[in-house]
Design a protein around this nucleic acid. Sequence first.
DNA 1: TTGTACGCGTTATCAC
DNA 2: GTGATAACGCGTACAA
Lengths: 351, 351
Amino acid sequence: MKPKITLKQIARELDVSISTVSKALRNDKAISQEKRDKIQAFAKFYNYRPNKIALSLKNRSTKTIGVIIPEIVHHFFAKVISGIEEVAASKGYNVLIGVSNESFDREVIHTEMLVNSEVDGLILSVSKETCQLQDYHHLRETINQGVPIVMFDRIVEEIKCDRVIVDDTEGSRKAVQKLIDSGCSNILLLGTKDYLNIGRYRKQGYLEALEDNDIAANPDLIIKIDAQGDAEAVLKSIEQEINEVFAKVPNVDGVFAVNEIYGITALNVARKRGLRVPEDVSVVSFSDGVLSMHSRPSLTTVNQHGKQMGATAALLLIEKLETEFEEESFTTKVIQTEIVERDSTRKPQLA
Amino acid sequence: MKPKITLKQIARELDVSISTVSKALRNDKAISQEKRDKIQAFAKFYNYRPNKIALSLKNRSTKTIGVIIPEIVHHFFAKVISGIEEVAASKGYNVLIGVSNESFDREVIHTEMLVNSEVDGLILSVSKETCQLQDYHHLRETINQGVPIVMFDRIVEEIKCDRVIVDDTEGSRKAVQKLIDSGCSNILLLGTKDYLNIGRYRKQGYLEALEDNDIAANPDLIIKIDAQGDAEAVLKSIEQEINEVFAKVPNVDGVFAVNEIYGITALNVARKRGLRVPEDVSVVSFSDGVLSMHSRPSLTTVNQHGKQMGATAALLLIEKLETEFEEESFTTKVIQTEIVERDSTRKPQLA
DNA sequence: TTGTACGCGTTATCAC
DNA sequence: GTGATAACGCGTACAA
């Protein structure tokens, strides 16, 4: 039954000035012990809390971090947010979230809304559409307005800002090397369109690993999936694409998928075709989810450490926000991936 | 290269008063057409945007909704947020997120931070710990401060507020009925501790379905999982519990799990024991995730419609925020569940 | 030791 | 038509 109370009300109630109350509450020795005690007790009783909006206006800082992601119903992004949230909370920051839904327009709208004095800084992963359109004016303006940006995962190389990325190329290389080490030589790459950096880099890692081992790349074994629609439809379409490859190139003995869904689907398709996993065909995928742990056989993955990415991005941003003299220097943090070996790959054949 | 610009700066630049600028920008006919045009052009050129913080202070409304959830790396909650976000964005609201991590203290801290003039209203699902401690002072205070609350999923019956819940009991009843219809009679319930409403209600639905069909409940077939720790460890422990039941009661022919993980795990355990799914044992689970679609066989589930829950909660809240005369009336919306039939259950035996 | 005045950016009211 | 003023809630430099 206590409505919000302000300094002014306390002042009137206790018959002192507002600034006396303000000082008393910050325990300013200029105020007599007696008054301090009295005011503090009163404030405590009425559960006084400084109005954050007023403070934000005064301090020109909202202690709030904006986060814009393409999609929240996605384990990777959820993990990133959890990392951001944890760090932010520990440093006294709030997290304001916008979801672009892979749309350029919504990304721009969210950026403008958030940057408009609502957040001190922005963490974002650009939408697919933005990658395609290559229109980054909203990001430039944000930075010009003095709001620092940290990009993660899907970064834009043309924009100068702090970045947190995964060692995509290296992660892929390691994954494919693992397949090769366990005896695979006809390795299918389940990738995405190249306009996404992750699609490009992961393909590059795949190619590097082949080259390292003097295996010629087979174009038939590189497919770029670009399915759209609802989940069930996408699944069907992926299944079909994979099926076609298996039909065309019967001696496929390894699959490297750029994400978990593709990996699981490949695994299921292979088994439906009567192939044993991992005996006949091994599967590794990049991963951001929970599917790999629960599939049968469980899926060997390249762990992206989403939570760590989020935490790193938040630390980078808060550090920038809290250092006075901002020389124009930008950091790029590369989060190392890690292969989590499960049952969809064979142990390396030692000699 | 345009730093933030304020009314004051425009006024000085154009040598008029601040209020003239303010009026001109809102196209007030009191200002001469000439000046209006000039000011508007100038403002547009410098990309003027009213400072939201100042507006919040003035209007005593932040156009921001606070959301507190126990866990964000969880498909169900991610979906709820996506529903909230979508509705909020369409109504011009922002979403501020706090994650309690199932901790009472963190829930309280987040509540206090958010309610402290930062948000106009709160949407929340209480943490497990809060359910156990039954300490709801932070929620009461929030409401007393005039900040409306909408609870979803994990609600607190002692607190009067709007609610969005799933028809847990009915959903469970339907699921178990489905198992019975397809010929099951020894149905294992994989539940959780009763202090969570969802645990209690889902068990109740299970019991109701049995009773409806004159099947006596077997205590050995009702287990309450309460695993904690990291994901892999939890998984092992669940597997073991399920294994023990199968060993003790060999004629189990159906499993009803209160969540997807338990369902998938049961499915995997059954198959590892050489049982065929769905021929020997059928499995149905409540679901909030993506596992069910990708498992083999795919899992029949009770869909919770998380996104719809979020959207409904947001609508309820915004409606309350935007209606002037708030009579003390609270709504409880029940979101209907829906059985999504996949391959872990047999088709009903017709006669 | 306490109070006054000012500014953060905005809008609304009222005077000129 | 236009501008000065007050108010939202706070903190702080400065005056008393």
